[in-house]
Amino acid sequence: MTVNNQTPDETRRVTIREVGPRDGFQNEPETIATADKIRLINRLGAAGFKRIEIASFVRPDVIPQLADGVEVLKGIDLPSDVDRLVLIPNSKGLDNALAVRELFDSAALFVSASQTHNLKNINRTVRDTMDDVKRMGRRIVAEGIHYAAVVATSFGCPYEGAVDMERVFDLAEEFVDSGATEIGFGDTTGMANPAYVSRFFARAAQRLPEVELTAHFHNTRGQGLANAYAALEAGCRSFESSFGELGGCPVPAGSTGNIATEDLVSMFHEMGVHTGLDLGAVIAAAREAQQTLGRRLTSHSIVAGPVLWETGDPAVTCLDRSPAH
């Protein structure tokens, strides 16, 4: 079977982590009911996601929207093969997370490649953060938890401008030395462009050959999907995105959301790239998030739906002719 004249290639298979329940919701001003979060996460699991970022163990007074993280983790009902990821900001957050160790599978630690952004975001220097990472990483590995790491502002900083690529990889290697097996590179304020992304992931594969490399793009300047395509062509096979294009960095102002999961999945399916996801169900989950928030979200697929492919039978329309999962 072909998809839009593209022959499916079994080697072009990607994984997508849905980060909406954490990264997507964290900047929402109106409190989202715990029951609504649980229902939406369960829908994501039913849509085929094998990786979902669910909660953060940040102080409730810092991000009140995520204060119910433990309740959400306790309330969700996901298939057993879904990886439940939580974000850990510091050693105190790790203490709190380990107190409910049975509720999650993966933990992510993070730093910004930009000193200024790191100070504004978590009020710590990059070096202080990485010193803490070394201690936390050992504890995470000892608990048998999948350890992921994130380098924010990997593609540019709104305060400092260009960020040296090799500096980003130096930080990534420190995470790997502390036990991380996955490194996510965050385009935190949407400053990446496809040409740079292509060079970046080609070099990342050289510097980190045994590590899972994950691309995390924001759509602040409308280049998110183009950047995802460039990363794919450079060999990246792991991506993060948020339903409805929700999210954004708390600092600075104007940093809009992640690339929309439903748009990313739609693009990949049109290209014959395997995702393991039910696009119709992904769009339905995004539309439910829109209804829950009571405002129109900005993804294209929420409005347009999936591409309609004619099956040859006038009585049947196939909503998604992506390759079999």
Rank of each mutant, 00 (worst) to 15 (best):
G272F: 01
N258W: 05
L119W: 08
A284N: 13
E270A: 14
I259L: 12
A205G: 13
S301Y: 02
V126Y: 00
A172E: 03
L66K: 00
R13I: 10
V126T: 14
D131V: 05
A215F: 08
T7Q: 15
P252T: 06
D170G: 05
T153H: 10
A47P: 00
V168A: 02
G179P: 04
T181I: 05
P64R: 10
C236Y: 00
D263F: 03
V251D: 02
G161L: 09
H218A: 03
W309C: 09
V72G: 00
R124A: 15
I283T: 04
A285R: 04
D36C: 10
G222F: 07
A107R: 00
I88S: 01
T15V: 10
R295V: 06
D77A: 11
S266K: 06
I183M: 13
T31Y: 08
D83I: 10
L85N: 04
A234V: 13
T11P: 10
P306K: 06
P323L: 08
H274W: 08
R199P: 01
Q115A: 13
V133P: 03
V176T: 11
R237C: 12
L308P: 05
A304K: 11
V86D: 00
A284E: 15
G247E: 01
D128A: 13
P60R: 12
Y196P: 00
K92N: 13
A107K: 01
G254R: 12
G254H: 09
